[in-house]
Design a protein around this nucleic acid. Structure first.
Length: 271
DNA sequence: CCCGATTCCTGTAGGC
DNA sequence: TGCCTACAGGAATCGG
């Protein structure tokens, strides 16, 4: 399930193959993703060259001289380079056919992903305009987390998963970061000390960086642009390890539900 | 503004 | 073996 490291892994995987390439055709086989894929994309893109391949939060941005293609992988999406015209499976919803005989193929079984077209500045697009800072930027630090969290009653886990606070921290990395920082996920965000927020910001950066270095986390179906899975799952400390011994103290890892999402933590190491 | 619940979708896993 | 149900999750949206 793509979180920020998986999206960044995808970006790095596809960029060298698609940047400076011209689009020949766009084939949309299934329009109904998170939002409808705009009609007539082919007319916008055909003949235009991909100038940049960037990322904001979990969105991939393909920059053209006449606009930006905004892609989101949802929770089951992946982008891969395939030979143009190769047989499409039932979940292969979109092919962006390039001028070198290859195609960028969006596969997404659960269809929570999105593909949108923006003609203005992408940062001003409604979906991106109100997002919090990038977790790996200098702007995101303990001070920032401390300031933003004062007075907030929701749990620290839900707080760091809020895209208006910081982007790219999904369910897996939220649990992992809180474990590294030694913070109980149920604690009210507004009551976490400045010192602990420093540790948390550092933990989020460390966990995300390590995951990117490993090519992301493949739990079920994630593959990078080269079709290879990520290897970070082997380094997970708590996620999905309910009942198994904590790597720090040996206590059984506990699972709880917060905001309809599973949280994993060690009751001894995280207080 | 803040917060919790609901919603989209389908593959997978567990129960019987 | 097969059927049924619960569950997984990103993030917009809505109701309180």
């Amino acid at each position: 399930m793509p979180e920020l490291p998986e999206v960044e892994t995808t970006r790095r995987g596809i960029e060298p193959h698609i940047r400076h390439r011209k689009v020949n055709d766009v084939i949309v086989r299934h329009h109904q993703l998170r939002w409808p894929v705009p009609r007539g994309l082919n007319n916008q893109l055909a003949g235009h060259t991909i100038r940049s391949v960037s990322r904001r939060a979990k969105y991939l941005l393909l920059g053209f001289d006449n606009g930006t293609l905004i892609l989101h992988l949802g929770m089951s999406g992946s982008l891969r380079l395939v030979s143009a015209g190769s047989a499409a499976g039932k979940h292969d919803h979109v092919d962006i056919v390039l001028d070198d005989g290859m195609a960028l193929r969006l596969t997404d079984p659960r269809r929570f992903g999105a593909l949108l077209w923006s003609t203005g500045h992408p940062d001003e697009h409604e979906l991106l305009a109100h997002l919090g800072p990038e977790p790996l930027s200098d702007f995101f630090n303990g001070d920032y987390l401390f300031q933003r969290s004062r007075g907030r009653k929701s749990s620290i886990k839900q707080f760091i998963m809020d895209g208006k606070v910081v982007v790219g921290v999904g369910n897996i990395y939220a649990s992992e970061s809180l474990f590294i920082a030694g913070i109980n996920p149920r604690r009210a965000a507004g009551k976490v000390s400045r010192e602990r927020m420093e540790r948390l910001a550092a933990a989020i950066k460390a966990v995300l960086s390590a995951a990117i270095a490993q090519g992301g986390t493949t739990l079920r179906d994630f593959v990078g642009g080269d079709g290879k899975p990520g290897y970070f799952a082997q380094q997970l400390n708590v996620y999905g390890r309910e009942g198994q011994p904590c790597h720090g103290c040996g206590q059984a890892v506990r699972q709880i539900v917060q905001g309809q999402r599973s949280t994993y933590y060690c009751p001894r190491c995280q207080r």
